[in-house]
């Protein structure tokens, strides 16, 4: 069993978190939960300040890169949100952040998330995998065609498409859910490993 106070503290906090499921919501669980959020926020603030120091303040003060004053002022303007008479100034910075993000995102979004992915579904029907991909793409897309109701001429043979599409979507969501459950189990395994190896010393895994 570990003799390190750090490990004991971490084990206590882990068990405090487990107490929600195994016992019920309690003060120890809430304290551990709040500590987790507080530590995360504190760490993010410190890393953020270090990032500003390295990429903004130090080059400005030590290297005389005065152009960096502009982004630093824009950054400070974000905090005017808390000063009512000049709170509108924060919108200027926010608009630059949003516009830059949108512009950069659009640079590759059409190709990465539309053209390349659609063209990847144009496959020769020479294997079961390809057949499933092409069929899934066609019927999956048909499920989202809302320009015309599946009535009249579209009813009948074509009406099967969105129904089949819904099945494909359900299978895809099922696969996502299966993976999600696997991910959550992995988190539990991580904490269980910490308890049996690092705290109790029952495992020699490295």
């Amino acid at each position: 069993m570990s003799t390190s106070p750090d490990v004991w503290l971490a084990a206590f906090l882990t068990l405090a978190m487990f107490s929600l499921a195994i016992y019920k919501e309690n003060a120890v669980y809430r304290a551990a939960e709040h500590a987790f959020i507080g530590i995360g926020a504190g760490h993010a603030i410190v890393t953020g300040i270090q990032s500003i120091q390295t990429t903004g303040w130090n080059p400005l003060v030590k290297n005389g890169e005065y152009a960096l004053i502009i982004p630093m002022i824009l950054g400070l303007m974000l905090f005017t949100k808390y000063i009512r008479p000049i709170s509108h100034l924060s919108r200027l910075t926010m608009s630059i952040v949003v516009a830059t993000g949108a512009g950069l995102g659009l640079r590759g979004a059409v190709q990465a998330q539309l053209l390349n992915q659609v063209s990847a579904t144009f496959l020769p029907l020479n294997s079961v995998n390809n057949l499933i991909i092409v069929l899934g793409f066609v019927v999956g897309t048909s499920y989202f065609l809302f320009t015309k109701r599946y009535t009249g001429a579209l009813e009948g043979p074509l009406g099967i498409l969105p129904k089949l599409g819904r099945w494909f979507l359900m299978i895809a969501f099922g696969a996502s859910f299966g993976n999600a459950s696997m991910g959550f189990l992995s988190m539990l395994i991580g904490r269980a490993l910490f308890l049996v190896r690092d705290w109790l010393g029952l495992s020699s895994l490295v």
Partner: peptide
């Protein structure tokens, strides 16, 4: 992560 798998797979499929 496993949760991200299904939505990232099309990027592999499309090369």
């Amino acid at each position: 992560t496993a949760i991200m798998g299904p939505q990232t797979q099309p990027y592999l499929q499309s090369g």
